[in-house]
Design a protein around this nucleic acid. Structure first.
Length: 400
DNA sequence: CCTCCACAGGAATTTGCGGGGT
DNA sequence: ACCCCGCAAATTCCTGTGGAGG
């Protein structure tokens, strides 16, 4: 800071190691806070893999930002390392089922993650071949390279069917794979996932062990953020900042990811204002920004019509504030108007129903079934879960 | 208990695209 | 070159449903 003879800025005045605040950053073990019990349980479940035996299949429940993926990845990595020391060839594959929601995409990702083309001489193309071909190649890879493999299926409830779970659990028995054990770690944030139409044999094999990750409390959030203090330069963070952010995040959902986002945005706000300290009053803005950002992320990649539908609902919500729910047919009418203005052909009512359902699935809206009673029929009402103003703003600059 | 309405939502199918294997 | 595969988007057709009032 005091190198006054420097012509150029030699370093970031706020951040020292910004990577520590990236969502995907995997901290070293000392930095995982408040999940000791969970880590122990997980380790215990997969432990047999170290001796080349079958690990237990695991299902992890918990809301977003409770450290599910983090712990799963961390344990898997540790397991692979330890197994190596014992002379066992182990590896793990991580699949984000929100991204790879079909059976084929999921197998492809697993196979690609475990493959090493130079070594196996097996090609795993991104797409274009039959699902069964992916399986055949995957089994080949497993046979030739590994003794034991862990498959992490994150957001497993986003998977369209459980065929892949069937295949994985059956691989050994059906003689597809002889010398390689497979363990599955499923991660879900919908508690009712298991009940909801899971094939009976999949259910029993997948759910050998079940763990629930509770939300973090204010104290733990505080520690989590404290552990990443090194992301900032010395003296940049004022004392009250972390406790304040922790309290705010704990009040909402106990979501660690959001807490860390808030911290990062607070730093960025300081940066853009050209000040050298992060103070408490930045926190409120930072939280707002974290939320807008999360929402923008949800909408990224959605089709124009999906956005028009959302826009229709937003228009309705803005026009009468008291509104607690609008029925599909009303939304559809506004939607048709939106389409006219945008110069697009409107889709069928049936399709719009599906689009609305998708929004509900992403927790952008909420649906509830209503009944009008006598000869009034039954219908579904939709309401926005986010602030309509925020939605409108995000929609406006997403459409460009 | 039955009816009646206004929908919900499942099933089947089409279209069009990107990208295989041989 | 040709045919096959997966998949998303969308349509069409159709059956299912909740509950107040008869």
């Amino acid at each position: 800071m005091s190198d006054s003879d420097d012509l150029f800025v030699r370093h970031d005045p706020i951040f020292a190691q910004k990577e520590l605040l990236e969502i995907n950053h995997l901290p070293d073990e000392g930095r995982i806070v408040g999940r000791d019990e969970e880590m122990k349980n997980l380790a215990n479940a997969v432990n047999p893999a170290i001796f080349g035996q079958s690990p237990s299949n695991v299902l992890i429940y918990g809301k977003t930002g409770t450290g599910k993926s983090l712990c799963a990845k961390h344990i898997s990595q540790r397991l692979v390392d330890t197994a190596h020391e014992e002379g066992v060839d182990a590896s793990f594959a991580y699949v984000d089922c929100a991204q790879d929601s079909t059976e084929t995409q999921a197998v492809q990702t697993i196979a690609a993650a475990l493959n090493e083309q130079i070594e196996t001489n097996i090609k795993i193309p991104d797409k274009g071949i039959a699902t069964s071909t992916y399986y055949k190649r995957l089994w080949q890879i497993l046979e030739s390279r590994y003794d034991v493999v862990l498959v992490i299926l994150d957001e497993i409830d986003k998977l369209e069917d459980d065929e892949i779970l069937m295949q994985l659990s059956r691989a050994g028995e059906a003689g597809k794979v002889h010398n390689c054990k497979i363990g599955v770690i499923g991660i879900s944030n919908k508690i009712k996932y298991k009940e909801k139409q899971l094939n009976e044999r999949v259910k029993s094999s997948l759910c050998e062990r079940e763990f629930v990750f509770p939300p973090y409390d204010g104290n733990q959030l505080n520690n989590i953020m404290e552990a990443r203090r090194d992301a900032f330069r010395d003296g940049v963070l004022e004392d009250g900042v972390i406790p304040r952010a922790a309290a705010l995040a704990a009040k909402e959902h106990g979501d660690a990811r959001q807490a860390i986002d808030i911290l990062r945005y607070a730093g960025e706000i300081a940066q853009s204002r050209g000040v050298s300290k992060v103070t408490e009053e930045f926190i409120v803005d930072a939280r707002e920004q974290a939320e807008t950002d999360r929402f923008r992320e949800l909408l990224r990649g959605s089709t124009p019509h999906s956005r028009y539908v959302l826009q229709a609902l937003t228009i309705l919500s803005l026009n009468d504030g008291d509104g607690d729910g609008y029925r599909t047919s009303d939304i559809f009418e506004v939607y048709e108007e939106v389409c006219r203005q945008e110069g697009a052909n409107s889709l069928s009512l049936r399709r719009v129903r599906d689009l609305l359902k998708e929004h509900a699935f992403l927790d952008i809206t909420e649906q509830s079934r209503q009944s009008g009673g006598s000869a009034e029929g039954s219908y579904t009402e939709h309401r926005l879960l986010e602030d309509p103003e925020v939605v409108r703003d995000v929609l406006v600059d997403t459409i460009e």
